[in-house]
Design a protein around this nucleic acid. Structure first.
Lengths: 215, 215, 215, 215
DNA sequence: ACTGCCGGGACGTCCCGTTCGT
DNA sequence: ACGAACGGGACGTCCCGGCAGT
């Protein structure tokens, strides 16, 4: 309609939305076409099969997650990196949540392994915790099992959106909701932090909040 | 075949399994009938529609969750109640996980509210934390936001199974896996407990483990 | 409608007719269903895919051709066996001609070998010629290459129907047409027969004709 | 790409190949466009419909068959004309075989008559046999029914390619295969020839073979 | 309680013809 | 001459609900 090749992107956006809302199998080609405002025939021109759309969305998700995992300068203070990466990861995992939720259906038959990017996100989190431990940000008193702690933290941020949807009936994840999710993530991490580390995290959080409110 | 009304139960069991594995929309009546070993016509005799099966499964799930929420004697020590209830909740939420995951598809159209039992599970957890606080099992030092803590704890136990499936590729939740999940739940709770409370929880955990290994 | 399981057979009959007339790809499921007088949904109950119909027709054809290849008593005079087998083969090859004509489309993808029954028919013909040679029914003067002769004979009877359709525009193969085809087959064989063998074949032919006219 | 109007010819070549291999209905516009290496929109520029392609191919076939039917000098010895015409006819009938095989689908609806060129080829063959009879090349002993003989001969050469494909699984008709086919054609004609005519045909055959091996 | 059969409709796919812009 | 994009509809598949018969 407006730009040149926007139709393809509009298809991807609407597909992602519908897949997330109704699941892959619960979404029909006709619904996608209608949401985009084109005919099914035209949709077929852009993507020859429903799985082709998923493949394109997978590429998008991969690009996004690689972006925030490698895109932050190593010399930044750890709390800032931690907060920013976790926020980006939460957002991406939510935006493409059907990829994980319906993974079993999507790979049914050609037995693909579980998504490697999920594990990569978790590994990044685990790595940051180890670095925080080395740099003395974690308390020694209740000795933390970093592996277990990182997994719990991962779960809280990964499934925060699903929790909201299932328990509170929300269908969209606005900024305040995401902020709340991150606070729950932090509620798990905080008792393991030293007093000074807590202050550093609070400050880092505040910086991200302000930037987000501007945008 | 053997008993009188076993067919109905076999239908429910297989449906639950398939719905969990492939999602509601991704499972066909024919697949259910074939898995049970009966014809589609016979299946129709027992349940007139696919949603009727879901309704029956919802009743089962409701009965189960009400059972463990009200079935424990009030005079038991809190740690024992906590551990047993959380274990039962984890199991039930996993066994009927499609009810939550596909809730949006299942209520699509007749706009039903989000599942009340989920909120009830969370409320029970919240209530136990408040009682634990009153009885002095929680530390005062890092003052816990009980609402937030209970939500994080809920998320860890509720989505532990999904995490395993998505990240580690598991398709079944055996006892060791459930035990691991509960340890992650505990890793979140422990830094908020007093030293004596921790010992009480460890003992309660051990009792449940032994009982489980016997069965 | 009338009998118990006739629907399945009616589907096979109409499918065979339409596949022969319009080719496999040129025939639609809707056309078959309409020709049978049932809905597409019901047709799907009997055959879950278009290729399933073809598979069932292949079985029918295999049974028929095995029938006439093994069903004739070995002690009959050779000319009678020859005539009867060739007639039956002509009929079956015509009735299921789409199986051969569209073989490439039907096996496209799962690279099946060419139909073995065709080769079996040709082998049976070759074998009869060898027996005729041993028993002195063939002339020695223009020494026949039996392999080549049997192939030419096979081609004339196999493609007689196609010839009629393509050149004379016929769509059905009535008895007089089949008889004409067999005469062309015989026109190829006769110059290779001894005088007495010719008379024996003429008599065998006459017997088949009379039987056919009665039926 | 290279020449100006080559695209049109490339379309015709690939279409003919695909139609022969998969049948008219079994071939899609998209497949043709992909085989040629152009877009469907561009293909539409050259041929507005699938049937337009067929019409152009029919013209090509007509031109070719008229060429070999009228292109041979009348004063050549009969055996040479016979052999050369039959070879050319075999080749053309094979190259455009889908025109005959799928004739029913192609004319479905606007009830066209069967292809006149087929009859013309057969008429030419019949005419040559009559001339051969007049010039004493045929034996009197087993008196040949020229009409029937010419039809059998026609069938053997016309369907030789189909026979190879159906029974021997070949997909291409190389020169040795075509030569074999012509030998089978000759195996039908030979017993009707006089001894001297046979020698003349053998010599004519040899001349064609040598010319073919050079090219 | 269970089977065989059936109808209507939806889904994913895909095809053919067409229009634009370059 | 050619590529990008598109519309409308058909095809094969398949699903869900339903009923007669036993």
């Amino acid at each position: 309609m407006n730009g040149r090749t926007t139709t393809r992107q509009r298809i991807l956006d609407e597909s992602r939305r519908l897949f997330n809302e109704r699941g892959y199998a619960g979404t029909t080609i006709a619904e996608i076409a209608e949401a985009v405002g084109i005919t099914e025939g035209n949709l077929w021109y852009h993507f020859r099969s429903k799985l082709d759309i998923v493949a394109a969305l997978e590429d998008q998700a991969r690009l996004a997650s690689q972006g925030y995992r490698t895109g932050f300068p190593r010399d930044r203070p750890l709390p800032d990196s931690y907060v920013e990466i976790m926020f980006s990861a939460m957002r991406t995992q939510w935006d493409y949540r059907f990829l994980l939720r319906d993974a079993l259906q999507l790979t049914l038959g050609h037995g693909a392994p579980p998504d490697p990017d999920m594990a990569a996100d978790h590994a990044a989190l685990h790595g940051m915790l180890r670095r925080m431990n080395k740099e003395g940000l974690l308390r020694r008193d209740p000795p933390a099992d970093l592996e277990m702690l990182s997994r719990s933290l991962f779960i809280v941020s990964r499934y925060w959106g699903d929790y909201l949807r299932e328990v509170e009936g929300l269908e969209r994840l606005d900024w305040p909701d995401q902020e709340r999710g991150f606070r729950h993530h932090m509620a798990v991490l905080f008792p393991y932090l030293t007093a000074s580390a807590r202050r550093a995290f609070e400050a880092a959080l505040e910086r991200v909040y302000q930037r987000a409110r501007v945008a």
